[in-house]
Design a binder for these strands. Structure first.
Lengths: 187, 187
DNA sequence: CGGCTCTTTGACCCGACTCAACGCTCGTGG
DNA sequence: CCACGAGCGTTGAGTCGGGTCAAAGAGCCG
């Protein structure tokens, strides 16, 4: 898929939670392949270009190409690992640390697909969407971003995120890219 | 697996978050099969009896028994669906609603494996572990349980959970069992 | 120019946390 | 048989992070 997308859930009360953010190159909705009932929605955050894979094709892959099937499976396992990391930050860290962590994660994932430019990258999320991702109010998202800017860790303006102090940001967010299961050169 | 277990993460700061609770019958750690680095720990909540499956066997299953492999995959997808649901409750609901939701989920999962007794079931979590599951302090867990008891929705005493008002509990927790992907008779 | 979406800021409030103490139960050793 | 400590549950007082409400900029398009 080209472009950014998100998976989300909406509670009966109307509150929305974004449960995953997809960057260009991600296989977005493999989860719906085997699940009987789709438990969440998918939305585009930018204009997207996507490739569709019929379930019949996936089924055939599991029958005939076990190696490829394992790779697809791995993709969903990494999604789950990210869910666990988010759960941990959601439950056990402050709003500021959580935001720092999310920025670190996005940076790593985007760098892997070559979408970073030095310490900067484009990120199309509005503050409202960020709030729905982190479980915060829009107002508080704004204050957190202001704090990160004032602490000279990172700035997020006009859809461009620029990391000013990677080590500091990583420490604040208690971030370690291990859970992303990326294979690449050490930084 | 017989007995209760949990998967958890510990942050550098020392704070713990439980990311999954496993009930008897669950395939506990299929996630470690394909993931290069194990991103979390597993702990027993009670004495457990378990069956081990070597990775080589799993590998062979994916090569030779695609139908079975899809079932295993489905298991991990359901784990991910539960993670998304927890994420949503964590980010977008009150402590009381979150607790109600967790109790509803445990009830449904335990009923499926025949471990409920009417509206009661055994649940070995301490309040500290409950707090680490819900992202709350031990003290607040206690207050939330007290509130649920006083509202005559559910009681949790000496490791026995008894649901007094299923509909009320479900409404409060905005619970719908859909995400669990259970196949069974409607209640 | 007006209207829309998104961002920013201030004032006030409340849900959940921390600290601290006390109670209960059970297992262990003198 | 009782004393003691460990682990878990319960409760109160005070604090604070993040929410809500409200209003004002800032960029963008028609």
């Amino acid at each position: 898929m080209e472009g950014f997308a998100a998976r989300y859930k909406i509670l009966p009360s109307g509150r929305r939670q974004i449960t995953a953010i997809h960057v260009p190159g991600d296989f977005v909705d493999l989860h719906s392949f085997l699940l009987k009932t789709m438990d969440h929605g998918v939305m585009a955050l930018t204009a997207c270009e996507l490739a569709l894979v019929p379930h019949a094709t996936l089924l055939r892959i599991t029958e005939e190409k076990p190696h490829l099937a394992r790779l697809l499976w791995l993709g969903t396992l990494i999604d789950a690992a990210i869910h666990r990391e988010w759960l941990t930050m959601m439950g056990r860290s402050s709003a500021t640390a959580h935001m720092a962590h999310l920025i670190c994660e996005l940076f790593c994932r985007l760098q892997l697909v070559g979408l970073t430019d030095g310490w900067s990258f484009r990120c199309p999320l509005t503050q409202e969407e960020l709030g729905d991702t982190l479980g915060l109010s829009t107002v508080h998202v704004n204050r957190v971003l202001k704090e990160l800017r004032e602490r000279k860790l990172v700035s997020w303006q006009n859809g461009i995120v620029t990391i000013a102090n990677w080590q500091g940001l990583q420490d604040l967010g208690e971030f370690s890219e291990l859970y992303l299961n990326l294979i690449r050169e050490p930084r």
